[in-house]
Design a protein around this nucleic acid. Structure first.
Lengths: 320, 320
DNA sequence: AATCCATTTTTGTCCAAGACAAATTTAATT
DNA sequence: AATTAAATTTGTCTTGGACAAAAATGGATT
């Protein structure tokens, strides 16, 4: 019993040449249905078939799909990019708008960190970040260093200047640093109890951690559930831990309507007394608001939002 | 334009009553194809249809699917459980074998922690864990407290005694603790450079973190990429960071053949001088070994494995 | 009773080709 | 220039069939 495709696969030193549709779905984030539809409509991807008639994707096509994914994530439409040859796609990547609004002054730390990441100088990177944190304090560190660095790394991935493993490594370093910082803060239990998480499908944990850092600095009592908590479990957790506020984090990639539907759904399930906050950069271009949901467009708004809550809450308890 | 199903859905105060197949896939982890196949073969799930002929699953069926998932994860087969009524399923959950081999003496800490988790007494839980860590040291804490607690929580989920949000919360607490402990260890750079990660599809980050803790204690230089790194990126990262060892972590849920295929694949891509270690409880029942891959059946074996590496490596450099 | 091998059943995943609604773009009108 | 309407694009869902890997079963042998 031998497999022709696996034999042809291992030709030029690369044994991962050929993968099935499940692997492509996993590695590109494009659903099987989408992959088949593109093949039907645009003629790409164009996988060969194994002895059983099933699709087998060569590594080059997988790589091209990743590039296409980047372009679509940054606003282009499938019909305009999927059937284009590879060099045209590379050309288009150059013309993407780089949306990194940087505050002058602290941009050097983020730039330096990015350079160290690319050079794989991990020890120095950690030192630099750790030093910045100590010098600026947690709040300013998150706003002025981590946030722009996040953008740099994110754009670097879209433009292909950052490998996946470098992004992973970056996320680990920041996580280590922020968790350590958050962990060493006392937390006197006086502030509001805030339940932090993301909904299923949203995997971006750094945004959540940055929010937790900013909230902890303001003496809020944070209870983080990590990423991807189902709606029903958020409701249960809010009750079990007597949360005053449920705070969700979205990355910009999420379709706006999905966000609205989820928020409305969750709002309906939560007790009325519990506030629902939603952070994510997409609010900057949001067309409508969701009733009963507080939009937090940027991390910098967090102190003000907390101050408002405290004012309203103290007034409320005084009235009682 | 009105939707009959959504109207019947919002009857008893629950607005999430009806969901489409995508949501079910997301919330249960069962693929769309599997859900349709079960419906065809066993008559369950049995969703109604919306005006467009698409499946709409009521909340009860979703809940039952979650229970079925637990039973299958613990070894039962779909044909025996999918078509059974709900009360039979509950009865079967009671009869599941509890496979927690506990070392006498330290089991009280894990049990107490589990109890505190169920009572949502977060502050006390953190204190207890933190105290155990200080008393036992990181290594023993991981082996004697975290590992059995992991089992307790995992089994609790399978048996339905633990909610998803409680598991999330647990994972966050442990993560916080371990990261903090790992972060405060000096790391003199003398030990082997170990690249730690999991392959795509493997999301269990606690196992990885526990391994990192045990390795760090033995003065290894750990470079963690977090979870779900593609094979090609592992190879790149190993080169970029001059790793001596690549260590992968698997949870017991992964099919054995998948593990073997991935390992063989990765082994072929990695430089021959780089060792490949693979940890995961499935080795305890493993039928075969993979050439060129070192199996680490339990965390307790880590010190010995590191000692072996050091012996071989020092002999090697002396011979040169 | 335990181990091994061959046969049968179970089960997850894949396929094709069509359909449709939501999102987006384009065209037309005020 | 701003709205509105029509056309296009695009992701996701549908059915019913197919097949291979995994698991269970049934003997035969040690």
């Amino acid at each position: 019993m031998f497999d022709i495709d696996n034999m042809t696969a291992s030709s030029p030193g690369i044994s991962t040449s050929c993968v099935n549709i499940s692997a492509v779905e996993r590695d590109t984030g494009l659903s099987k249905d989408t992959l088949r539809a593109w093949e039907r409509r645009y003629g790409f991807p164009n996988p060969s078939r194994d002895s059983n008639g099933e699709r087998v994707y060569p590594a080059e096509q997988l790589e091209k799909l990743r590039i296409i994914r980047r372009l679509i994530d940054s606003g282009l439409r499938p019909g305009n990019v999927v059937s284009e040859p590879l060099d045209v796609l590379y050309a288009r990547m150059q013309t993407l708008p780089s949306s990194v609004p940087r505050t002058e002054g602290e941009f050097t730390a983020a730039d330096d960190a990015f350079r160290l990441l690319k050079l794989h100088r991990l020890v120095e990177l950690r030192q630099l970040l750790s030093h910045s944190l100590m010098r600026l304090g947690l709040q300013r560190f998150v706003l002025d260093v981590v946030a722009p660095l996040n953008e740099l790394v994110g754009n670097g991935w879209i433009e292909g200047r950052i490998e996946i493993f470098e992004e992973h490594l970056y996320a680990e370093q920041i996580q280590q640093l922020l968790r350590h910082a958050i962990g060493t803060m006392p937390g006197d239990g006086s502030g509001p109890r805030i339940l932090l998480t993301t909904l299923p499908g949203e995997q971006h944990k750094l945004g959540l951690l940055m929010a937790e850092a900013c909230l902890s600095v303001e003496a809020a009592h944070c209870i983080s559930l990590g990423v991807q908590t189902p709606v029903w479990d958020i409701v249960q957790a809010a009750r079990a831990h007597h949360a005053d506020i449920v705070a969700l984090s979205y990355s910009q990639a999420t379709p706006f309507n999905t966000v609205c539907a989820n928020l409305a759904n969750l709002r309906g399930e939560l007790d009325a007394a519990v506030e629902l906050w939603c952070g994510g950069s997409f609010w900057q271009t949001a067309r409508r608001t969701v009733p009963g949901v507080k939009a937090i467009a940027t991390l910098a708004e967090i102190p003000a939002a907390l101050a408002t809550w405290r004012r309203e809450h103290s007034a409320c308890s005084a009235a009682q």
